[in-house]
Amino acid sequence: MNPEASYPVVVWAGGPDRPGMIAVVATMLYEKGANLEHCAMTQLSGHFTMVMLVSSPVNADELGDYLRSGLAQTHFTDLSVTVRARPLGSERPLDGQRCMVSVYGKDRPGIVAVITTLLAEQGVNVTDATTSVLDAGESVYALLLEVVLPDGLDVAELGPALSSAAQELGVDASIRPIAVDVF
């Protein structure tokens, strides 16, 4: 860890997936003296995408220029990079019941919009979301969410609201608490 890296920033990078993408970005950050903190990186239908919380020794604009000009010297010229300053104190702890929400059924427009709007109206915080279109002859859409319920909202209350919204969309939905066993 470099204690001189005092600019909190978010780095987004993405492009057509091939081996070495994380390595080239992580190496450039390491060589600059930036600390890579919390990241999510995944491959979506052949597109690799990375979101990284970084503390940088230079400000967001400078780090962005450094990464882009450095990548231009590699064979990862099709990797696009965006860097923004990250307000400190945004890492608030999430207290509350963690739940898993599953929504799936015949593909149609609006599934994500309707379900996440319902959750937002209830003050439910989505912490992770994955969606996919599955080809099982007919197109099936699946949306999986990890959420944190606000204080005072119970799974037993949210479940029926979720089910009726799903019913209007012609899909199925369920919600259940995520149990973590600590040993």
Binding site: Q43, S45, G46, D128, S132
Partner: peptide, 12 residues
């Protein structure tokens, strides 16, 4: 990882 429900398809 937590996204393990969706089997990764092969592209390329």
């Amino acid at each position: 990882l937590s996204t393990d429900v969706f089997r990764r398809r092969r592209y390329r």
